[in-house]
Design a protein around this nucleic acid. Structure first.
Length: 273
DNA sequence: GTCCAGGATCGGA
DNA sequence: TCCGATCATGGA
């Protein structure tokens, strides 16, 4: 990885086999819009227009090193995924095949509250509509940050607004879950900083205290928002994969400590047919 | 119109 | 403990 800044924006070279498209399109994040060969992305209160050419990423609208470092961290470009993929490939031939057929997926390092809230919205929902609802939540409570995006609202902003104020985002029964999460996080009942320092199992249990958060939503939040790469979310697609290739005796611990990375490859390949 | 979506909760067996 | 109905909404 090699970061430089010029008049047009930031440039990050030597990103290995990182794939911007596969990483964004693998269902981890919902605040991005495809713009021809580029992606307009938002995370927290950051935004950028990003293109990839070979192993180099270009960030339009990113004019200083701090902002470039934010995106480098967001895409987890400092981690050696080659090593992880090699380890997983040696562990399991099926995962090896998934990695080979769609390489370059990184696990994003998203902001914890934003990730938790986004995956509460994701339950029993499809990705295009999840994106719409998340963007709607931001435009309702956030501030303009450019590229047509709004910042992700803090938990206390949503908590103070009240559950009725959420109705315009059309999240249906999930509104009460979003509100419960916002209240617990805002008043400190759930301390996301403490969750971040917990062991995986305890962290899952802590997040499940929130109404509307079960194993799957908790696992997604911990994987994509807390850097817990061993979390293994099981949704309908991963259930298909397990039934198809592994059977009832499947145990995700076989991929430890990178079960989440394996899961993401299996999920992506299955969803792309 | 029907089926389904990166599920979780609830009530009843 | 297990299982099915139910939950809002709209994409495909």
């Amino acid at each position: 990885m090699n970061i430089s800044i010029d008049a047009t924006g930031a440039r990050i070279a030597d990103t290995g086999d990182f794939s911007l498209e596969r990483t964004l399109e693998s269902g981890q994040c919902f605040r991005f819009v495809r713009d021809n060969d580029a992606y307009l992305c938002a995370a927290g209160s950051h935004t950028a227009r990003i293109t990839q050419d070979g192993d180099t990423l270009y960030f339009e609208g990113v004019g200083d090193m701090d902002e470039a470092l934010f995106w480098a961290d967001y895409f987890d470009l400092g981690r050696d995924y080659g090593e992880i993929n090699e380890f997983l490939s040696k562990t399991d031939a099926n995962v090896a095949d998934a990695i080979k057929s769609c390489p370059g997926i990184h696990i994003l390092k998203q902001e914890p509250w934003e990730t938790l809230c986004s995956f509460i919205i994701s339950q029993n929902n499809n990705i295009p509509r999840i994106k719409k609802i998340v963007l709607s939540l931001c435009s309702l409570f956030g501030d303009e940050i450019g590229n047509g995006f709004f910042s992700f609202p803090a938990a206390d902003v949503i908590a103070r607004a009240g559950v009725e104020a959420l109705s315009p985002i059309r999240a249906g029964f999930r509104n009460k879950y979003i509100f419960d999460a916002a209240c617990r996080v805002a008043d400190g009942d759930i301390d996301l900083t403490k969750v971040a320092s917990m062991e995986l199992e305890s962290a899952v249990g802590e997040l499940k205290r929130i109404k509307g958060v079960g194993d799957k939503v908790a696992s997604c939040a911990l994987l994509f928002g807390f850097g817990m790469l061993d979390a293994f979310p099981v949704d309908v697609w991963v259930k298909k994969v397990i039934g198809k290739y592994y059977g009832d005796t499947f145990e995700p611990r076989m991929f430890a400590p990178y079960a989440g990375v394996a899961q993401q490859y299996l999920f992506f390949r299955e969803r792309s047919l």
